[in-house]
């Protein structure tokens, strides 16, 4: 009993270690339970708040599970057509070069229908941040095969598993982005463990700082889970991701500014 009283006493503002960002509006995310999207959305809001960028940020949300991203975060937002977010962000950044501009896109949006916009924004070295969530599936439309679906992986349009002979190979678009002269910092991270979240947040902070220094395009892939699309519990999906997705999409920096080694 005495112990419980002590416990309640700890819950005081001066003892606060973590609470969600005040930039997140008092709404429940529309993401499914256990989806990594929520974690990325959360830390993005935290960083915008921590870096004091709320007043000068314009975000671009995609078509897909994060289409309503703008409804959760108290910053100016544009919602783009499917795959076009990098072009929309280009328009914003070219006309408002001193604003912080980012896109938030899934693998279907960025690596299939929006491949052209992605590659060319990278190649022009637009001074924007692209946050790319790769969960190997089309979540919003009900679990169809994505450009990133790994060989043998089942989806509603590859029900017997992705057959690379007929369905082609998964596209490692982040690797392509890293080869383009316009990109400045390209990394692949995840948010499936506390340590991974901390690393992703560090990478995102770095990218946001680079933008304020006009260094060019920063590209952050986040390998993530899709419990609903993969038809697993969230905890199972994390395990499956570690065992199957991460070997195909290894984590770490793909391109770092000259003279800087950001791989810990």
């Amino acid at each position: 009993m005495e112990e419980t009283c002590n416990m309640q006493e700890i819950v005081k503002p001066e003892n606060l270690v973590y609470k969600k960002s005040s930039l997140l509006l008092d709404k429940t995310f529309t993401y499914c339970p256990g989806c990594g999207h929520g974690t990325v959305t959360r830390i993005l809001a935290e960083l915008i708040e921590e870096l004091g960028l709320q007043k000068q940020t314009v975000g671009v949300s995609p078509v897909g599970c994060s289409v309503l991203l703008y409804a959760f975060m108290d910053i100016d937002f544009q919602q783009a057509a499917h795959g076009r977010a990098p072009a929309v962000a280009t328009g914003i950044k070219r006309l408002l070069p001193d604003r912080f501009v980012f896109t938030y896109q899934g693998d279907g949006d960025l690596a299939a229908i929006g491949t052209s916009e992605t590659i060319h924004a990278c190649n022009r070295g637009e001074n924007i941040l692209i946050i790319y969530i790769n969960n190997g599936i089309y979540g919003m439309t009900g679990g169809q095969m994505a450009p990133t679906t790994i060989p043998g992986m089942k989806s509603s349009t590859s029900p017997r598993g992705r057959n690379v002979q007929t369905m082609g190979y998964p596209l490692k678009i982040t690797d392509i982005a890293a080869t383009l002269p316009g990109t400045y910092y390209v990394t692949r991270q995840s948010v499936h463990t506390p340590a991974a979240v901390r690393k992703t947040k560090k990478a995102m902070r770095r990218a946001m700082e680079y933008q304020s220094l006009n260094r060019g395009l920063c590209f952050i892939e986040i390998v993530s889970n899709c419990p609903s699309g993969w038809k697993m519990t969230p905890v199972e999906s994390i395990k499956w991701m570690e065992e199957n997705m991460l070997p195909y999409y290894p984590l770490g920096d793909l391109k770092t500014p000259a003279g800087e080694n950001t791989n810990q």
Binding site: I10, Y18, K20, G34, R42
Partner: peptide, 21 residues
């Protein structure tokens, strides 16, 4: 009060406190 739970929570529903007792 390590905050691991809050850091992985996709919905940001966990608030963490820590104190010396």
């Amino acid at each position: 009060g390590c905050a691991n739970c809050a850091i992985v929570c996709p919905d940001g529903v966990i608030t963490v406190y820590k104190a010396k007792i």
